[in-house]
Design a protein around this nucleic acid. Sequence first.
DNA 1: AATATAAGTGAATATTTATTCACTATAAAG
DNA 2: CTTTATAGTGAATAAATATTCACTTATATT
Lengths: 188, 188
Amino acid sequence: MKDDKKYARIFRAVLKLVAKKGLAGMTMGDISKEAGIATGTLYVYFDNKDALINALFAACRENSVAVSFRGYDAQQPFKPGFRNIWMNILRYRLQNFEEFIFLEQCYHSPYITAATREKARQLAEPFYALIARGQAEQLIKNVEKDLLITFIIGSMNELVKQTHYSGTTLTKARTSITFDLCWDAIKA
Amino acid sequence: MKDDKKYARIFRAVLKLVAKKGLAGMTMGDISKEAGIATGTLYVYFDNKDALINALFAACRENSVAVSFRGYDAQQPFKPGFRNIWMNILRYRLQNFEEFIFLEQCYHSPYITAATREKARQLAEPFYALIARGQAEQLIKNVEKDLLITFIIGSMNELVKQTHYSGTTLTKARTSITFDLCWDAIKA
DNA sequence: AATATAAGTGAATATTTATTCACTATAAAG
DNA sequence: CTTTATAGTGAATAAATATTCACTTATATT
């Protein structure tokens, strides 16, 4: 019986190593050592390095979407709902920085297959729906949703990276300032 | 006499390959093949793979800053000056996408030495000065410059990636919309 | 407890990759 | 033209790495 704990340890090892060495720079030996298991065991759990990376990518992607909408209630007015989601995403990425970096590295890596990629794309739907709601309520600029989402996510991602690599903590004040920048950008 | 044309061919090969396979995924054999030279020749021009990557990183970084301020005139009013620089950066990154990706990959890669990194950091000074001017003229929100720069650059970078990978062309209209998002975000 | 099945191992193998080096081609200097 | 120095080569070597496999250990089943 394959052990869920072991999957978790392998995944955690990969996340740590990718943040440090990149996808191709991380060896199977690195992974087994970091996870505290034998190299051969990796091949009990996964067919090969590619399969391992694809499996982890899919798992992270699902997880990340689930977390985003935590506490969202469509009855609630738009702006606080949007703010809640924005904060959820920001908090999660800061607290799970290695996972964030792993996903970024995967997005355009040859390790990720077209099939894995397509599944990931579908998970973005709820974000389009959210923007659509804001536009319907005339609170959000009526421009292409892609542009808005790209803008929102891009500015947030850079904040996450900047915060992490500079070693500073993101205070409530700085977080709030950045949300306001974002809201002023997109508000109608 | 080492040939400048050859340096250029090597660099172009690396940019192409990094965009496709990542820093660690690109082999010296890949590079020589792509550049149309013998593998040994790479070692005539560079001590090893690390040195090659550091040299290219430094060259790209300098280039990218020089381009940003092209046509900037401090006499001109702030907003059009800022818009000009914003457009310069966006245009350059779109037209030199592989260089953009290469730089992004380098920023937090173990290939890049602390020395190379420090030199790169200093090149950001002019951007802080630009923001300072906007704040002095009360046109830009008076919040930490880091946050503003991170926000501006992050949203732009994501737009560049999104545009490139989706295969769409960034129309004048879409560009203008995104600039307006950015300006509305930061304006006082 | 005895047996069967699956997980786990890590040294051995096969493959890939960085780097070297003995050699050739080219070009500058006398 | 000859000599000397430098660029260029690519097969050979040395590491590094992915993957396999014969074997051991643990767990479930009868």
